[in-house]
Every structure is written in structure tokens, then in C-alpha cells.
């Protein structure tokens, strides 16, 4: 029982945080609880041994999504829209329905867990074919080799999401920071952005034999890009090249066609070079994911290069 004390605590924390997130009065409180909830869920993934998912949950679920929510909240508040952000009421019917659904889910899950044998056949299959897959990390093997179609579709879905955001045409962050506010962000970016570029590359590389991979690397790079854009509005002002945005999808589809030509089967990598094919696809995918996540925040607009708001100065008035 003591051994599971930690697990019980974080399970309780998850439920409490979720309730707080749903039922708090102010939107900003909900957002904060949501970010905390993401981190606790990442802890749960770690406890379950799913380290890749834990990294992705912390980076994308808490980091990128949290930033997205905060930007949206500020933009809505600034626009003084009709949506009342200070009140967060849910009708009684919704609460009752949600409670009912949760009870059903918990009941069915627990009966499945209690009364059926765990199916270890899948894990055995993966482990026995691992040496043929070209990588040592079973998660990457499944994602990029055994079930590569699913990953191809996932990247397609991400691309569609970015298309949707672009077509609305409203950027979440469309005013320039006051010149003096840029100074500290500028200094922060000098430290963080190169480190994130390097570390994202490492995460991409290490996905072959350790927790990591394309999605995690893409999330790290997206964070670096967003910070760079906040600190240096001039630098990334031009439109994102559509080639870069879609390169993940293009490379993946090209790989599929190429493998069809070579092996008469889509995405059946040549046996000796499977690892290299996977690395190539992962790199393209990571670049795409980073740019797609970044594009959720910023719709590029032409910035007048001569305006005074674009010169970054620090508090003393010196220009950087």
C-alpha cells in the first residue's frame, strides 16, 4: 500500500485539479489549473513508464497549449468582447451528464481491468521485431515503422489544423511590444533560443534509442520560435514558406511512394537502411511540427520596417 502512496496522491491531485479547472469562476484561474493539470498528467505518464508521451504531454499539452490559452485570454480581454470571461458557469444539466458519463467510464474500465488478463502479445510482437525496425526505441519503431501510416495521417491532421487557423486570419498576437519591454525578452532569447535549437536537435537524434523523437523535438523548436518572435518581431516577420510548413508531409509521402517503387509496398523500408529512412522522415516531420505549432500563434503580417516601434531599445534608451 505504501508503495502506491505516491500514485494515489497524484491520481487524487489530477481529479482535484480537473474539478478546479472546470468549476473555477474566472477564466484565468481555469487556465492556470489546466497548465498544472498537464504537468501532473505528465507525471502520471512517467509513472506508467511512457516517457515519450510524458515529454510530449509536458511540452505540448502544458507548454504550447498553455501559451495558446494565455494568449487567447489576453486577446479576448483586450478586445473587451461580449464573452464574459470573469464568469465561468456551467449549467446543471451539463454537470449531471458529465458526471454520468464519468461514472460509466470508471465502471467499465475497472471491470475490464479487474476481470481480464492483460494482453501482452502486442508487447512481445514489438520486441521480437525490434531488431528489424532499424531503431532501438520501441515507441519510435511503432510510430515510424510498424504503424507509420498512422503517423503520416497525424501529420496531415496537424497540417489541416494549421490551414484552418490560417484561413481564419486572426493572429493571436498582433501588436508589437513596447520597445522597452523587449529588452529583457531579448536577453532571455539570446540564452534560450540557441539552447533550444541544440537541444531540439538532440531530442530528435535520441528518439531512435531513448525517449524522444520528432514530436518532442518539434515542440521544443516551436517554443524557441515563439520566444524568438516575441523578442525580435522583425526577424520572423516574413511569411512562412509553405514548403517548410509542409515538408514533413511531403517527405513522408515521398518516402511512401519511393518504398512502393522499391519494395512493392507503401512504407516498407529497405531492410538495411530502415534507421536512416526513419531519421530522414523524423527530421522533416520535426521541422514541420515546429513551424505548424508556431503558426498557431502568429499569422504573419507585413511589418513596416521604418516604424519606431521596431527598434528595440532597453530601459536606458540605448538601442540594441
Amino acid at each position: 500500500m505504501m508503495f502506491y502512496l505516491f500514485d494515489i496522491i497524484i491520481a487524487l491531485m489530477t481529479i482535484i485539479l480537473a474539478c478546479l479547472c472546470l468549476f473555477s469562476r474566472q477564466a484565468i484561474n481555469s487556465i492556470t489549473y489546466f497548465i498544472a493539470l498537464g504537468l501532473i498528467v505528465a507525471l502520471i505518464w512517467t509513472r506508467l513508464g511512457a516517457y515519450d508521451v510524458a515529454i510530449a504531454e509536458a511540452a505540448i499539452g502544458s507548454g504550447v497549449t498553455g501559451a495558446l490559452l494565455l494568449f487567447s485570454w489576453r486577446k479576448l480581454r483586450a478586445a473587451k468582447s461580449n464573452i464574459t470571461l470573469t464568469e465561468n458557469t456551467i449549467s446543471k444539466k451539463v454537470i449531471a451528464t458529465a458526471f454520468f458519463i464519468v461514472v460509466i467510464i470508471v465502471f467499465s474500465l475497472s471491470s475490464i481491468l479487474l476481470f481480464s488478463k492483460p494482453n501482452s502479445a502486442l508487447a512481445y510482437l514489438v520486441d521480437s521485431s525490434l531488431s528489424d525496425s532499424g531503431v532501438l526505441n520501441p515507441v519510435t519503431a511503432v510510430l515510424l515503422n510498424f504503424r507509420s501510416f498512422d503517423t503520416l495521417l497525424e501529420i496531415g491532421v496537424l497540417f489541416l489544423a494549421a490551414l484552418g487557423v490560417y484561413s481564419i486570419g486572426i493572429s493571436l498576437f498582433d501588436y508589437e511590444l513596447k520597445p522597452s519591454s523587449n529588452f529583457l525578452l531579448h536577453s532571455l532569447s539570446k540564452l534560450v533560443v540557441p539552447a533550444c535549437v541544440l537541444f531540439g536537435g538532440y531530442t530528435l537524434w535520441v528518439g531512435s534509442y531513448s525517449p524522444g523523437g520528432a514530436f518532442q523535438a518539434g515542440a521544443v523548436w516551436a517554443g524557441a520560435l515563439i520566444l524568438l518572435r516575441l523578442a525580435h518581431p522583425r526577424l520572423l516577420a516574413r511569411k512562412l514558406s509553405p514548403w517548410l510548413l509542409t515538408i514533413g508531409l511531403i517527405v513522408f509521402i515521398a518516402a511512401a511512394i519511393a518504398t512502393f517503387v522499391i519494395n512493392k509496398n507503401f512504407l516498407l523500408y529497405p531492410a538495411l537502411y530502415a534507421g536512416k529512412w526513419i531519421l530522414l522522415i523524423e527530421t522533416a516531420a520535426a521541422i514541420s511540427i515546429a513551424l505548424l505549432l508556431y503558426s498557431l500563434f502568429f499569422i504573419p503580417k507585413k511589418i513596416n520596417s521604418k516604424s519606431a516601434a521596431n527598434t528595440i531599445t532597453d530601459d536606458a534608451g540605448e538601442s540594441i
Binding site: 539570446k190 536537435g201 538532440y202 525580435h232 531519421l279
Partner: peptide, 18 residues
Amino acid sequence: IVGLPAIVLASVISCRLA
């Protein structure tokens, strides 16, 4: 193979921002 582009890119960005 992944490291070299990452290192070069990080150095270039770092120089540009510094």
C-alpha cells in the same frame, strides 16, 4: 548527422542575437 546542422544553426543564431 543531426548534430552538425544543429550546432551550426545554434551558433549562427547565437551570433546573430548576441
